[in-house]
Design a protein around this nucleic acid. Structure first.
Lengths: 332, 332
DNA sequence: TGCAGGTGTGGTAACGTTTCCGGTAGGATG
DNA sequence: CATCCTACCGGAAACGTTACCACACCTGCA
């Protein structure tokens, strides 16, 4: 920049003014400076700018595992929106480890991100929450609820309603013993999906059989192991809800291994409409939601507080919808 | 930091020294400073540090579309490796638009990233290459080759070999008319897959029927449209290679629409072993590669040049392997 | 006792911007 | 013609670190 100023025969402050198109700059000045910039191929140093301005135009993004297509979609939506607004995203994976969540938040704090979008690995962990409270920039939670963190916005999917309708669909088809494989209750989707499952049971006056409920993970391996257990029960369920796109992968592996055919022998419901669900034979009934949109909304909630520091945190809810396909059939 | 120094009754430089655990610091000093840091909850400002040191400990990552599971896996591998080495990843999506590639590179240059990992949307675009040349930090290309960019390392998958073997498998099964749907040739995987396809043809002394070759996109929509065209030919192919995980989605949609059953009526091969390929009925033969590993290697190639500025750019190749499944059957 | 060679420590100049303040020139106004 | 205002521009102090230099003290050795 000094170079540019010298070349254009003007002061540093003038160069800065044309760069930030400040009103107080004549056309002649602008022309000279622009020319010098072109000739030198000068590119402003955003880190110096960040230091001086006290804003990095950067937002942190913490997610368990970007390789999960669900998070990938959310990230895609969020990054696009942020980028258009002039912000860059710094991405970190917690790898599902609550302790890493905390570490990543601390790192992002040191990097002085202007805001944070996070999908906690565990909502209940004290240390992580304490770390988040230290952060004095706007926070947006993705599908997470942290009671005593009033400073955070959130975008939430209405899992409970979707799961309730899915479960009722199964009841309507004559199923009475319904298995549920889902993520742990230390995270909102796990709790909400279980809540919807329970709501459907109580509305139909059926007691929940807790032997059929397996919560605790979201990996294919967990899905496979739990499906295997359920299938080997003396009185196995006639329908299965595999509440997660990766759990579905494991569940299908277990079903194949046991040579149980979906639809005819067991009804199956999953969550999130991935290609596998759509194109499986038979196609699989799912509780879907718009994940890309969730990312966009998360970014939007953050931007509204970045652009107006007075803005209060908000929570937005996105609906789920039940897509009924051939994997759910009448009980025999 | 000034605050910490005052509180501990020492000089700024001493605080800096304990922070960077410089050898010249006594135990007493360290203790005092650590205590003051704890009391104040001080977190160093990495942007100031970056400015002063001339290194941001940050690497840029440019990818067409993070929502593509392929890129998501690569990103996952790369981010993990970088994070462990103390680097943060700033992620940008080019959305498959070559002009955005260029814009993103420029942005990352301004942000003074220490290195760049990029999977160009179009390898042939002059402006993007010029922009990359201006960058004076190490670059790693992911599955891309840019002739006159000697300064870049690269990690490449051996698509040609995999595709050759897949095509030969189809020949061995008695197929003679084989359709190919693949990405455009402006990108290495497109060229290499076509090359393997051609190699197999010439080794079997079969001429390539160019009416059966549809290159140009990687979206489900493109896959569906091209598969539809191929199926409607007066003399349609008896086997189809859908060279991309998203193309597979579109291809399957077209096949379902046309009520053509995979395996028995048409043989099908795809690339990259996504859950859909494994669990589809019948399971789909694929040319697989370890995408997570590709990300790790990309990060590794970058780190070796970051840690030793003398290190020369290298190119690493990862193998592909053919996983034969029931979707490929003898021609009738 | 004097001096060389460590060990720690403090002071300060950078890094590359932005922003505020003061100043100049020129035109309009009385 | 003096005055005021506007429009524009230059200088310089920050932003929060790090790295270099200088110096003070101590230990051991001649």
């Amino acid at each position: 920049m000094k170079e540019v100023a010298r070349r254009a025969g003007v002061a540093l402050s003038s160069v800065s003014r044309v760069l930030n198109d400040h009103p107080d700059v004549s056309d002649a000045m602008r022309a000279k400076v622009i020319a010098a910039i072109k000739e030198l191929g000068y590119q402003p140093n955003l880190v110096a700018s960040s230091l001086r301005r006290g804003s990095t135009k950067t937002v942190g993004f913490v997610v368990a595992d970007i390789s999960n297509p669900l998070f990938a979609d959310i990230t895609w939506g969020a990054e696009r929106r942020l980028n258009r607004a002039g912000y860059s995203m710094v991405l970190t994976n917690s790898e599902g480890d609550p302790a890493r969540d905390e570490k990543m938040v601390r790192l992002l704090r040191r990097r002085r991100v202007d805001g944070l979008i996070i999908s906690l690995a565990d909502e209940t962990r004290k240390e992580t929450i304490a770390e988040l409270k230290h952060l004095e920039v706007p926070i947006v939670l993705i599908d997470r609820e942290v009671g005593d963190l009033a400073s955070a916005s959130a975008v939430l999917a209405d899992h409970a309603e979707g799961m309730r309708r899915a479960t009722e669909l199964l009841f309507d088809l004559g199923h009475r013993r319904i298995g549920l494989i889902g993520p742990s209750e230390s995270t909102r989707p796990g709790r909400e999906r279980l809540a919807g499952f329970k709501a459907a049971h109580s509305s139909r006056r059926v007691g929940v059989d807790w032997d059929l409920v397996k919560l605790g993970g979201l990996s294919p391996a967990f899905g496979e192991a739990m499906a295997h257990e359920l299938l080997n029960l003396k009185d196995p369920p006639s329908a299965l809800i595999s509440a997660g796109n990766l759990l579905l992968v494991g569940t299908l592996r277990a079903l194949h291994r046991a040579r149980v055919s979906v639809g005819s022998e067991i009804s199956l419901v999953s969550c999130d409409d991935v290609p596998l669900a759509e194109l499986y034979n038979p196609p699989i009934t799912v509780v879907d939601r718009n994940t890309v949109e969730m990312g966009e909304i998360a970014a939007g909630l953050l931007l509204e507080r970045l652009e107006d520091p007075e803005a209060k945190p908000r929570v937005a809810t996105v609906p789920t919808r039940l897509i009924v396909r051939a994997s759910t059939a009448a009980a025999r």
